[in-house]
Design a protein around this nucleic acid. Structure first.
Lengths: 143, 143
DNA sequence: GTTTAATTGCAACTTTGTTGCATTATTTGT
DNA sequence: ACAAATAATGCAACAAAGTTGCAATTAAAC
C-alpha cells in the first residue's frame, strides 16, 4: 500500500488531478506485477465502489499522459500496466510483452536497446518507427 | 481471379469442403496483399451475398485448419490473412506483422529464423514457445 | 472560502462477434 | 448419375466490452 500523498504526487507529476478515483486505481496498478484488465481492477477494489465508466476514463487518462500503457490480451480486451519501474519512467519500446498461454497473465519484460530484430524489409519502403514484441509461452507461476 | 477448381483443391488439401461461400472468401484472401477484416471481405464481395455469420464461421474454419491466421488490428478487430506465399505453406512464426499507423493496413512480412530477439529473461522462469512481432510505421503506399 | 474547469456517475447506446436451430448443400458410396 | 449421411448455411436473438451525452460533484487556484 503506497501512501495517498505519494500517489497524488505521481498524478501531479503527470499533470493529472489527484482525485480519489485515480488514487485508488493507481494504487492497484502500482501493486501489480502484471497488466490488469478493467474487470481485474474492479475486483481488486473492495470497499470503495467505482463506476465502470469512471474506471475506463481513469485508465484512458493514465495512458494519454504516459503514466500507463495498454496491451490487448488474446481475447482482445485491454490490459493496463504502469510505465514505471521502481519509480522511474520506462519507455514503451523498452520492453516486451510476455503472454502466458496457460494462466493468460501478461508481463512487461525489460529489454535492452540491443535486443532488436533485424527485419529484412527496410529496403522495400516500409519504415519502422516502433514495435511491440509479444512472446508466448508459460510464466514462472505455471512452470 | 483464381479458378474455382484451383481454390476448391486448396480447400480439399486442408480437409475442408469446397462450398461456394468458402471459394468466394478464399478468392478474396488470395487476391489480397494485406490482412482483411470481416468488413473488408464483405465489401469486396459484390454480386454474391454472404451471411455475416457464415463469413465469421468460414474464417474460423480457415484458421482452425491452418490455411489462414488472424491478427488483431489497433482497434482490436480480427484481420485474416492466408498462410500461403505463392502456393507454399508459411509457418505462423516465420513472419512479422507490419502495422501502418497511417492507413492502418497490416502486412505479413517474411522473416528468417535467424531474425529473432534475444530476450534476457529465459533464466527467470519464463519459457518462450512462440511469438508475434508487431512492427509499427508507415508502409510503401504511405511513403 | 469562492470560483472555474475538470471529473464523476448514470443511462442509453454501439460495435463486433457468438449461439441455437431449422434448412440447404456437399461428399461418399453405389 | 442418384440417394443417404453429414457438414455448412442463414436467420434471429443474444452477449460482452467499451463509448457518449449530460447533469451533478469535486479538485485546484486565487
Amino acid at each position: 500500500m503506497t501512501s495517498d500523498k505519494k500517489l497524488k504526487d505521481i498524478l501531479h507529476q503527470y499533470g493529472l488531478k489527484g482525485t480519489t478515483a485515480r488514487i485508488i486505481v493507481l494504487d492497484v496498478l502500482v501493486q501489480s506485477q502484471v497488466a490488469l484488465s478493467h474487470a481485474d481492477i474492479l475486483s481488486r477494489i473492495h470497499g470503495e465502489d467505482l463506476d465502470k465508466v469512471t474506471l475506463y476514463r481513469t485508465l484512458s487518462s493514465f495512458v494519454s499522459v504516459g503514466l500507463a500503457h495498454k496491451v490487448a490480451n488474446e481475447d482482445r480486451n485491454w490490459l493496463y500496466a504502469l510505465l514505471l519501474q521502481n519509480n522511474r519512467r520506462v519507455g514503451i519500446d523498452d520492453h516486451a510483452h510476455f503472454i502466458c498461454d496457460q494462466c493468460e497473465r501478461i508481463y512487461c519484460l525489460p529489454m535492452d536497446a540491443e535486443d532488436t530484430i533485424s527485419v529484412p524489409v527496410m529496403d522495400n519502403g516500409f519504415v519502422i518507427r516502433s514495435h511491440e514484441y509479444r512472446l508466448h509461452g508459460t510464466c514462472p507461476e505455471c512452470n
